[in-house]
């Protein structure tokens, strides 16, 4: 299975290493041809404003929307979660609307407030690293909450889309990637809206 890592800007390196360590082929996605080749896609952390601008400027935004609608499994971390969300609180920043959540940017604070904490995921314990992380402020009823921290969901799934506020690619915990690569199937969108 060819796993694409969106590599316009941000933490693509660490995702690639994690995917490869789980025995999958990973490659960088910067062009339409590469995006077409991806059977699954990871959108890394980084600056969501930069990624959106580059997606638009290089004609990938529409194609990405189409691939997601057609059911390509996608996993977004941090800025990637912002891109997958349906909107950013208090901002008109363009997003993909793939998961029915609204997020607030940098809501866990600036860099000096970045932190790592253990979180329960069913009977598993994962180590979650939050870096200038987005916080989910509200969600639609179609959104499944897999992991929460304090009163906010931090790992959510809707159909074939998965999103995390934190950075599983930086802590050596591979369970979230394993879940994305092994347990999520392609689910084309039914257009209920």
């Amino acid at each position: 299975m060819a796993v694409g890592i969106l590599a316009l800007q941000g933490g693509f390196d660490a995702h690639r290493k994690t995917v490869e360590s789980l025995g999958f082929e990973a490659f960088s996605v910067r062009s339409a041809e590469e995006l077409e080749r991806a059977e699954r896609l990871i959108i890394p952390g980084g600056e969501s404003t930069v990624m959106t601008r580059l997606l638009r400027r290089f004609g990938l935004l529409t194609l990405l929307r189409e691939r997601i609608a057609a059911g390509m499994p996608v996993f977004g971390t941090c800025a990637g979660m912002i891109l997958l969300s349906s909107g950013v609180a208090g901002s008109d920043q363009e997003t993909l609307g793939a998961i029915d959540i609204e997020v607030a940017r940098n809501a866990y604070g600036r860099q000096s407030e970045s932190f790592e904490t253990p979180l329960n995921w069913g009977d598993r314990v994962l180590s979650a690293l939050f870096i200038r992380a987005p916080r989910i402020t509200c969600r639609g009823k179609g959104v499944e909450v897999l992991v929460s921290f304090e009163d906010a969901p931090v790992l959510v799934r809707q159909g074939s889309c998965l999103a995390a506020s934190f950075h599983p690619e930086l802590t050596g915990y591979k369970g979230v990637h394993r879940y994305f690569l092994n347990e999520m199937d392609s689910e084309p969108r039914t257009n209920e809206e």
Binding site: Q9, G10, G11, G46, Q111, S114, E116, F130, I131, R132
Partner: peptide
């Protein structure tokens, strides 16, 4: 430590930028 991971983690997020 975790602090070091979050410090270098922010640098990771600036890559390709």
């Amino acid at each position: 430590t975790a602090t070091w991971k979050s410090k270098t983690g922010l640098a990771e997020m600036l890559k390709g930028g």
